[in-house]
């Protein structure tokens, strides 16, 4: 479980996050949704400590992450897996080396044990036998899956995904979403996903947090989101041609 308590963050005069209070529960896929520029990425980077918060704190299972020093944070970081918006694979390493990297860095496993683990997680994301490919040889969807494999190679307790399916076709996007949800349930971890894709919201949104202009505007489940009367959220949800047509047909 991760808790955000009164998080504020500003860049110069730009107040990006205004007093965010939120609980992300274990074993659930917790979504953060909102328009482009609403502060989703900034919020996620505050949660993992890539940005320092101006005020407020972040608790990882009641451990106050915000007040920790670099060394204490390093411990928690080894329990975190993160999938970046653009994948962030190390482009000078092949798939196997990418996935093995955290294991090399932080464990004393033998080569054989590490290779077993790498093959296991690659199989989990349906990428057997691509160990020797370089990131430049992968398709967008494959890169995302390698990034997921790398993120879970250390058995994380917390999984962060920043727009895991942006830039993918709807079907591949769906595969990635389901993969994230399965991993979350299978290993009972706390997962937080940034997205602005309504398909993802409706398929894996166990808990949905809607950010509007830097504020936490609405919270609920994927089922509640279709029934809401909240104007800003409605604009977001039914903002496209397709969804608004569906809505008219419903009513």
């Amino acid at each position: 479980m991760i808790e955000a308590v009164g998080i504020c963050k500003q860049f110069g005069d730009n107040m990006v996050l205004k007093d965010i209070n939120c609980v992300f529960e274990k074993g659930k896929t917790n979504l953060i949704i909102g328009q482009s520029g609403s502060g989703k990425t900034v919020l996620m980077k505050c949660l993992v400590g890539l940005f320092e918060v101006d005020s407020g704190k972040v608790l990882y299972d009641n451990r106050n992450f915000s007040s920790m020093n670099t060394n204490q944070r390093k411990k928690i970081r080894q329990e975190i897996g993160m999938l970046f918006q653009m994948g962030a694979l190390f482009d000078m390493m092949n798939v196997q080396e990418n996935v093995m990297f955290p294991l090399n860095m932080f464990t004393d496993k033998t080569e054989e044990e590490k290779l077993d683990r790498v093959n296991f997680v690659l199989k989990r994301v349906n990428l057997e036998n691509s160990n020797a490919l370089m990131p430049s040889e992968l398709s967008g969807g494959m890169r995302k899956r390698v990034a997921i494999a790398r993120a879970i190679s250390m058995n994380p307790q917390y999984l962060f995904c920043d727009e895991p399916n942006s830039g993918l076709d709807p079907q591949t996007a769906g595969v990635i979403d389901i993969l994230i949800q399965e991993i979350t349930r299978e290993y009972d971890i706390t997962t937080i996903v940034n997205t602005h894709d309504m398909n993802s919201v409706l398929s894996i949104g166990d808990q949905v947090n809607f950010i509007y202009k830097g504020q936490l505007w609405w919270q609920g489940t994927k089922d509640e989101i279709l029934e809401t009367t909240n104007t800003e959220l409605n604009d977001f949800v039914f903002g496209t041609e397709l969804t608004s047509r569906l809505k008219t047909r419903r009513s």
């Binding site: 980077k45 080894q78 993160m82 653009m86 962030a88 694979l89 190390f90 860095m105």
Partner: peptide, 17 residues
């Protein structure tokens, strides 16, 4: 610089490197 703008440096930091 490329590693920075493609978030590879963030990825390292997140792992605790």
């Amino acid at each position: 610089g490329t590693m920075r703008v493609t978030e590879q440096i963030d990825a390292l930091e997140i792992m605790g490197v």
